[in-house]
Computed example of a mutant assay.
Amino acid sequence: MNILVGISGFGHGHSLRQKVIIDELIKRGHTIVISAYKSSYTFFSENYPEFKIVYVHVPFIPCDKNGINWDLTEEKIDEKDYFRLFVNTCQEIHKAVENIDLVISDYEPICAWYAYSIGAPLFTIEQQSKFLSFETEDVGNFGYQEEASRLRFFFPAAQFRLAASFFELKKKENTYDVKLVGPIICDDVLKLKRECDCSKAKLVLVYFSPFISLNDYLSLVNIILSIHDTKIVVFSKEYINLLPNSVEQYRFNRALFLKYMELSSCVISTAGHQLISELILIEKPMLLYPISTFEQQYNAMIVKKHGLGEIANNMDSENINNFLSNLEFYHNNIVLYKNQTNYINRVNDIVWFLEERMGL
């Protein structure tokens, strides 16, 4: 089959998940074309230089708990001619592979619109679609319509919707047909050791996301400064001048980050679905500072609810040190949680299902 795979460029999780699926598709002899932007374009250009990778331009659609915020959308819209850019994208895809048999989207809408235009089947595989069809609760000022409205706008129809999830949810009645599966995790994480000495916080790994606000940035710096007698390793896109020389700092590098993740006693990070899934797999307690989206707020709430870690918002030095003093408690909860839920890497089943749906 000739398969177009579109991958969101916000964060690394979408790229890592689709790498697993793409690698399996390649093993089975399928031809792959990729549409991507921002971080996903960089990731696949570096890791798959032999592939045709089309850069796409995705409009920013702000949403809140009531759905799409059209006033803010109008305010934020830029001067790009998105229709012309869409036409150019379609031309590039058509030149790369004349006939696309299947389109897979990981929260990338341009490939979906291309699928509609040529009548190709669309399969969505990401973590967001669960908010279309499963029961959730609001988290403060954040609600599921933030995700659901954007999904309905970007992907109004699909032959198959699959949502990865590290937590279980109850299905709603009379709604979209979405299949829930466990996390889809890369081989480089599956190979990591799962031994964790939580008797003392010996190494704290910190990830500074480029998407955090200035206030979260400063709060996180204060959290780091409140940690004493423990080795701290920080990864970020840029060097952080506010940190003391005693803190090891690196520009983000996947291989080096995983090395320290394996050695760490715990991890401080944003609340992205993919990283949380990886931390649960290798049994690392986590201190999360979710960015201002419903999905990350909900992920963090689930982590705290099940005792897998804590939420860093408004935490003072006493709270931080209490967290670091109770890592064994969180670790034991993670082991129990992982054993009670489905943490099998389902990529073989997923690709087999795709091929079966396509009649192969």
Rank of each mutant, 00 (worst) to 15 (best):
K193Q: 09
K171D: 00
K259V: 03
I223C: 14
Q297Y: 03
S325D: 09
N345K: 01
Y37W: 03
L354M: 12
G143Q: 06
I61D: 02
S236H: 00
D106Y: 02
Q128D: 11
L151T: 06
V347P: 03
L220T: 14
V20G: 00
A120L: 10
E92W: 06
L218Y: 14
Q159H: 10
R84V: 08
A157P: 10
D23H: 03
T270G: 15
M358D: 01
F208C: 12
I77H: 06
A300M: 10
E283W: 05
K172T: 09
P59R: 10
N333W: 01
M315Y: 07
I344F: 07
S219E: 13
L190I: 04
N222K: 13
A300G: 14
E79M: 07
S15F: 00
K191H: 05
F257E: 07
L263G: 09
E135Y: 15
F235D: 01
G9A: 01
N326M: 07
L16T: 09
I104N: 03
N332L: 07
E248W: 02
I22A: 06
D138E: 15
C266D: 05
N69T: 06
H228I: 13
P183G: 07
K200P: 04
E248T: 08
M358T: 05
V221P: 07
I311S: 14
L324V: 05
Q18L: 11
G9T: 03
I21K: 08
V58C: 04
L243F: 03
K304M: 14
W352V: 09
E50L: 15
Q128I: 13
D187K: 12
E283P: 10
T31A: 15
V103R: 11
S105P: 06
R150D: 02
T341Y: 09
L263V: 07
I302N: 09
V87C: 13
R28Q: 02
L25S: 04
I291V: 15
A158M: 11
V347H: 01
E74H: 14
